[in-house]
């Protein structure tokens, strides 16, 4: 239970970073921290005591497996996360070229 609460604390730190920080790169870091905490939370839920990796093998006995479903879903989500982070960073780099700063307080010009 304490693990779940620590995971929520990590999520909330990311949320705090997204709302509170004024630097675009730090906002993106906040997003990434939120993503990691959600990923870790789902894997923590799927863990079973004394269970093994969900791979069938003859060399060692295959006992009860940990839940393979969250692992399968998260595997794709990690790679997607990299692409979406790159998308956010490319928006940030474009804004830097336009305004000369990563500070969102400088970005007041609404015309495209």
């Amino acid at each position: 239970m304490i693990l779940f609460i620590l995971c929520f604390i990590l999520f909330v730190i990311g949320l705090y970073g997204v709302i509170m920080q004024r630097n675009l790169i730090k906002i993106i870091i906040g997003f990434a921290i939120m993503e990691y905490s959600v990923i870790l939370f789902l894997i923590l839920i799927g863990y079973i005591d004394a269970a093994t990796v969900p791979i069938i093998s003859e060399s060692f006995e295959s006992g009860p497996f940990v839940d393979p479903l969250p692992q399968a879903m998260i595997l794709t989500a990690i790679v997607i996360g990299l692409a979406t982070k790159a998308l956010l960073l490319s928006v940030a780099i474009r804004l830097y070229k336009k305004y000369g700063s990563f500070d969102i307080r400088e970005m007041k010009n609404l015309r495209g």
Partner: peptide, 17 residues
């Protein structure tokens, strides 16, 4: 947490990020 698939992919993704 017995998830080696995720560990392999995460370590590479982290470096690229």
């Amino acid at each position: 947490l017995q998830a080696p698939d995720l560990a392999i992919v995460q370590v590479v993704v982290e470096i690229i990020t």
